[in-house]
């Protein structure tokens, strides 16, 4: 057995030109990143899925469990209210007000980084702000709060009056074919949930922001790899590393 014989499974694989690899900062082994763009998109969609696609099952499972658990726990702490989106409406026009409308609910920009778990909020906000004036899921899951004077469908108003605590039929003006809400639902949520609205928001936001690191890990490998990594499509094949060299 030669001195430079491969000792790590990742090194035993034949090096192929054009493969995108990163170097593990722990043992210097090569990490096959496969298609980094696909991996990054997968890791955005479901945290850790990109790592699973790359065959890094331990890290994939770890990311998936940690981030999704935190997101769901935060959502539960916030009574299912803390993840909602604000989308630009047709009235915002094209002079930049539409972009500013996104920042009305700036925490969602962080929460959306957690992937498809935050997607219902976009669908709910889009339909509630559209001509239907009601969310896709009538149970108001991840639907944005109603602001004073907002028009909603009669069906959604009736559902809220029946199922939403603190809201009754008298809280709507009858404006056929819609109903107009006369209170501030966000203020009601803050009163009902107290500190848990902020804590739940923090949990879900942090889950999304930490997923940015996970996406980068799927895109470019471990952050600690530094200059030892060799990345880039079409680059030269990795030279076999010396197994007796001191690890960094």
């Amino acid at each position: 057995m030669s001195r430079n014989a491969p000792t790590h499974p990742a090194r035993s694989a034949p090096e192929q030109p054009g493969r995108i690899v990163a170097i593990s900062p722990d043992d210097g082994s090569a990490i096959d990143l496969r298609n980094p763009l696909v991996a990054a998109v997968l890791s955005w969609a479901v945290p850790g899925l990109g790592q699973l696609y790359q065959g890094r099952t331990f890290k994939g499972g770890l990311f998936m469990a940690a981030i999704l658990t935190t997101f769901v726990f935060g959502l539960w702490l916030g009574g299912g209210r803390v993840v909602y989106a604000a989308l630009p409406s047709a009235a915002d026009g094209a002079d930049g007000r539409g972009v500013r409308a996104l920042f009305k609910r700036a925490p969602f920009l962080c929460q959306a980084c957690a992937g498809v778990v935050a997607l219902p909020a976009v669908l709910q906000a889009a339909r509630l702000g559209g001509p239907a004036r009601e969310p896709w899921l009538l149970n108001s899951f991840m639907a944005p709060p109603l602001s004073p004077g907002q028009y909603v469908s009669r069906r959604y108003a009736d559902w809220l009056a029946q199922h939403e605590s603190g809201i009754g039929p008298d809280d709507f003006f009858d404006k056929p074919p819609f109903k107009q809400f006369r209170r501030d639902q966000l203020a009601m949520w803050h009163r009902q949930l107290g500190k848990f609205f902020e804590i739940g928001s923090l949990y879900t936001m942090l889950a999304g922001m930490l997923n940015l690191l996970v996406i980068y890990d799927a895109w470019a490998g471990p952050l600690g790899a530094g200059d030892e990594s060799r990345k880039g499509r079409g680059g030269p094949p990795m030279p076999p590393a010396d197994p007796h060299a001191p690890s960094s």
Binding site: F58, F73, Y216, G224
Partner: peptide, 21 residues
């Protein structure tokens, strides 16, 4: 409620800097 967040952030930071469990 901040303690689990510190643990989570530490775990994710560590896992994005290393490969070995």
């Amino acid at each position: 409620f901040g303690l689990p967040l510190v643990a989570l952030a530490s775990l994710i930071f560590a896992a994005t800097h290393h490969e070995d469990p």
